[in-house]
Amino acid sequence: MELDFKCSDVGVWKKALSSYESKVESLNKPDLVSLDQYYRVELPSLLHGRDPNPYLTTSELSQLMKWKLSRGKWRPRLLDFVSSLDDSVVKSASEKAFKSLPDISKAVNELTVLKGVGPATASAVLAAYAPDIAPFMSDEAMEVALGNSKDYSLKRYLLFVTKLQKKSKELKLEGEWGGASDVERALWSCTVRSKSKPAEKSSSEKKRKRKE
């Protein structure tokens, strides 16, 4: 099932979103299920438990990075970078970022001073605290929403945020729906599923196979 970003049928989007957990499991990546549970449930609870001055620790940022890399492309150097950051530096930068919300541009800039943290990782941090307004900048969702997933600039992320927030509001008008992060997860689920589905062989390919 591929999901057209222009689709306004909330039922279609809900079906896509409901497949998220099973899709995570089907990827069979080490620790991804537990990391996803940590990112979507445990980490948000920890962050909001620190209100009105929420912050992130180095160990939490490392776990978040493991989730991000496991769900997408594994880049071990990024994990090494964030794991070596001083705890006080991470706490300070993340606290400033969370306080900057709902100014997403400013919040991202507060986080990208950290080595190994670009707009995509910053978006994951913000999405853990404010999923309604700050969706994670996944390659899969970017590709569907913007037609390109290779530009990880802040400018591109802000365009992505605007489109997903708008889509979220549109779906809420049609029925019960979550925030921008639910839109991202629905897009991710469908895109990953379509990529992992074996391509149907043409009749000519089947004939060649029988001759081999």
Rank of each mutant, 00 (worst) to 15 (best):
S204K: 09
D80L: 05
S18G: 08
E184W: 01
S62Q: 13
I133N: 10
K15F: 12
A145C: 08
D87A: 00
D9R: 07
G72N: 06
F5E: 04
E21S: 13
V82T: 04
Y157P: 01
A180C: 06
G118M: 06
D182G: 04
K209P: 02
A120V: 12
R77Q: 13
E212Q: 12
S203C: 10
A141Y: 07
G179I: 01
D51S: 14
A97N: 01
L46M: 14
P135C: 05
P102F: 01
A93F: 10
A122E: 11
R193L: 15
K150P: 10
C190P: 04
Q63Y: 13
L61F: 09
S181I: 04
V192G: 02
F5S: 01
E2H: 14
G49P: 03
A120E: 11
E200N: 11
P30W: 06
V161C: 05
G116M: 03
K115N: 13
E143N: 10
L154I: 14
G175A: 03
N148T: 02
S18N: 08
P102S: 01
E140W: 00
G11V: 12
K155Q: 15
L79P: 07
L158D: 08
V113I: 12
T121A: 05
P52Y: 03
L32N: 04
T57G: 03
A128N: 11
N53W: 15
M1N: 12
K96M: 11
I104H: 06
Y129C: 09
N28H: 15
F5R: 00
S149M: 05
K29W: 12
L27G: 12
K167I: 02
V89N: 11
S83T: 11
A130R: 10
P119Y: 02
E143Y: 08
S70K: 10
P54C: 02
S202R: 00
A127L: 04
R71C: 06
L126G: 00
D132A: 05
K206P: 12
